[in-house]
Design a protein around this nucleic acid. Structure first.
Lengths: 225, 225
DNA sequence: ACCTGAACACCGTTCAAGT
DNA sequence: ACCTGAACACCGTTCAAGT
């Protein structure tokens, strides 16, 4: 290919699946899932929405591609390098981190009908880690199901709860209280609101509390420890 | 009011918030969240979509109302009646049951900006149960966060996983395998697929395994037990 | 007081027509 | 081979007009 040809191409890089996915990812990260429309992705690429269908089967396929990118960002320790507990702990934290970077993905990671290689590799290596650590098959399935339920469920709470920073808690609590005039009917929620406003709320700590409780509980099911 | 007036009214019952919510609930239960449009709700009531706005502020408000109904279906034991563990276990199972009845609600239960009384009462009584059972404040918060993360995360998996009945596992696995020609690269997933096809997969058992592990773990944080 | 027709600014997707 | 204009069947929501 001549340099001229390269230059011409770069003036307006040709559409590819890769470029479509990158534009869609940026859009979703910035504006959330409701900003992710075919028309908006097109706009971001200087192209009409219909052009995208040359590189992506439909919107479902586009989201599949995005989820695959998120899975590719999750770190999984190479087999045998770490103790199962450390490896699972690191992976769980890595999933949470990735889902904080891509909040739109919460609720979309599981049950994709067309999982890509990063998705499959991730699941395979979790299962492999547990099996190699001595979990009997059924218990390894239990462990994986339990950890993923917790991780994704926690991410769901974190996505929805209205404050990002610990010190925003008190404002939010006040607004909520105003919209609920009968707050006195819920004494334990009042306690939560006032205590939270005082001491704040740290998601990372909260997440790791539950995570460690799970890992402690799972250890008992491991054979040959 | 005369009997005539009553009859006239019943010929085409007047729109109320209640009737709008009931129609919306039936629609969502039947066709999922994507069937739940203002226009479809209107259609079901023999009315134009715009009429709904006389009884519901907007779609957000409508969904708030639906979530409130789901919370009202969740059973919570009266305070002091049961041991904390039994009460929390029953409530968790009741949440899962309600979310199976209303799959569209998974992912929408948490973080509503306008929680209704059933929602608040539910949260208050969970917190109350834990506090009265002797959990220190911070640990009660941990416990509630942990349990809800697990419950909602499990419901998310259950919603997305493609089979309802244990004996549908093998078909689904086969289809999945066909769409992934390099399945041999994922030996542990192959194990899962073949074992599942043989022995099936029961969600209720799976859910209760994790639930009991959580409750066991939490017991340690309770004072005065 | 409640319902509606028309309108606005959006969706995903198809398809024939252009280059 | 790739891009697009026009079109179709949808969205949520507003508002003036009807009863």
């Amino acid at each position: 290919m001549t340099r001229q040809a390269e230059t011409r191409r770069r003036r307006r890089a040709p559409l590819t699946r890769e470029r479509v996915l990158r534009a869609a990812l940026a859009l979703a990260d910035k504006g959330g899932i409701e900003a992710l429309s075919m028309r908006n992705v097109g706009k971001r690429l200087g192209v009409e929405a219909m052009s995208l269908y040359n590189h992506v089967a439909n919107k479902e396929d586009l989201v599949d591609g995005l989820v695959e990118i998120v899975f590719s960002e999750i770190e999984v320790a190479p087999p045998g390098e770490l103790e199962w507990r450390t490896a699972m702990r690191q992976r769980a934290i890595s999933v949470r981190t990735a889902l904080n970077r891509h909040r739109w993905a919460v609720g979309l990671m599981e049950g994709r009908l067309n999982p890509g290689p990063a998705t499959l590799r991730n699941h395979d290596s979790v299962m492999g880690c547990l099996r190699e650590a001595g979990f009997p098959f059924r218990d390894a399935v239990h462990a994986m199901s339990l950890m993923d339920a917790y991780i994704y469920g926690f991410a769901l709470q974190e996505k929805h709860l209205p404050f990002d920073e610990p010190d925003q808690v008190s404002e939010v609590m006040e607004i909520q209280s105003q919209s609920v005039p009968e707050m006195a009917d819920y004494p334990y929620l009042v306690e939560v609101a006032t205590e939270m406003a005082k001491a704040g709320y740290d998601y990372a700590t909260e997440f790791e509390f539950g995570l460690d409780l799970l890992l402690d509980g799972l250890e008992r099911f491991r054979a040959g420890g």
